[in-house]
Design a protein around this nucleic acid. Structure first.
Length: 304
DNA sequence: CTCGGTCAAGGATAC
DNA sequence: GTATCCTTGACCGAG
């Protein structure tokens, strides 16, 4: 059955309050303490969002990668000896999140941006990606997070070679990152079978993105496929991503909400399997709430 | 004070 | 090689 439901980063109900960000230039002008204030605001706001989630039975959430803007940038690192992970004030606020998460069995994830390319053929890109992953892993550790979700990366006109490079470069990662990493199928290059193949070679659990799968295939989900994905999760609950096409079913752009039909499909498939569902929709928390309502209605119909 | 072009980072594609 | 799209939301400077 479907267990936890979640959404990514933005909370529509709490607007106009937002996360803060900044430009490199501004940090250079205003100094490292300006950046620290932004970070404190963002960590506090994350805590506020998690409490809101809890009040609305939303037990899963993706933390924004921009929680600490530019902290891995070399110019910022060169500016001072200050490091966010050595700052007690920040540590205290991250700890509060960890406690909230653990007390309520919430599931936190992060999803490094598209320029995190572990299988790149450029050593500089790989090195930068690993640094960015280290930042994510530290943050996840501090907050009690569970999942660091990644795409395979580029193809470079030679997919098999690119896949081999992913496996090879996976072994350069620290044990902390390896433990947190999950692989997601994408909507144009790496299909679910590509990802399952890499999972077999690396032991990385697979996050099944239903919409990406549908964009690349006929969209039919078999018991065999679900079983294969499920078996990549040696420990813990499998996790999947759900979204609906904006203007037509295979539209890669996301709709504001999850359609009733898609909710129904996912509900049906997971009658006999356990999964946590991450909603990827423009209306974020509103879409997650509607999805939960739709699920309730479907479950109600079953119980009648 | 408001608005909209711009912003660290990669890759794919077209020219 | 260079431009543009993908795609996202807050920044921040021009007016």
């Amino acid at each position: 059955m479907i267990n936890r439901v979640g959404y990514a980063c933005i909370n529509e109900h709490l607007k106009p309050k937002t996360f803060r960000s900044c430009r490199l230039k501004t940090i250079k002008e205003k100094g490292i303490d300006y950046l620290k204030q932004i970070i404190l605001h963002n960590v506090e706001f994350t805590n506020e969002i998690l409490k809101w989630n809890l009040d609305h039975t939303i037990l899963m959430y993706r933390v924004t990668s921009d929680l600490m803007p530019l902290v891995t940038h070399r110019d910022v690192l060169a500016m001072s000896d200050w490091r966010w992970y050595e700052d007690e004030e920040i540590a205290g606020k991250l700890k509060a999140i960890q406690i909230l998460v653990q007390e309520n069995r919430m599931r936190l994830s992060m999803h490094p941006d598209q320029f995190t390319v572990l299988n790149s053929n450029k050593p500089k890109v790989v090195a930068a990606s690993i640094e960015y992953l280290e930042y994510h892993a530290k943050l996840m550790h501090a907050m009690g997070g569970h999942d660091l979700i990644l795409h395979v990366g580029g193809v470079y006109g030679e997919k098999e070679e690119a896949k081999r490079r992913f496996v090879e470069q996976f072994h350069l990662l620290s044990a902390e990152i390896k433990m947190l990493l999950r692989l997601e199928n994408d909507d144009k290059s790496y299909s679910i079978s590509d990802v399952l193949e890499i999972s077999e070679a690396t032991g990385i659990p697979v996050v099944f993105d239903y919409h990406h799968y549908r964009c690349l295939t006929d969209g039919k989900i078999t018991e065999d496929l679900i079983g294969k994905i499920e078996r990549t999760w040696q420990h813990g609950m499998p996790k999947m991503h759900v979204s609906s096409g904006k203007t037509y079913e295979k539209d890669k752009s996301h709709h504001a909400y999850i359609s009733w039909e898609d909710c129904r499909r996912v509900w049906e498939i997971y009658q006999r399997h356990d999964v946590d569902v991450m909603i990827e929709a423009k209306m974020k928390d509103r879409a997650a709430l509607r999805f939960l309502e739709d699920l309730d209605e479907m479950n109600g119909k079953v119980n009648q």
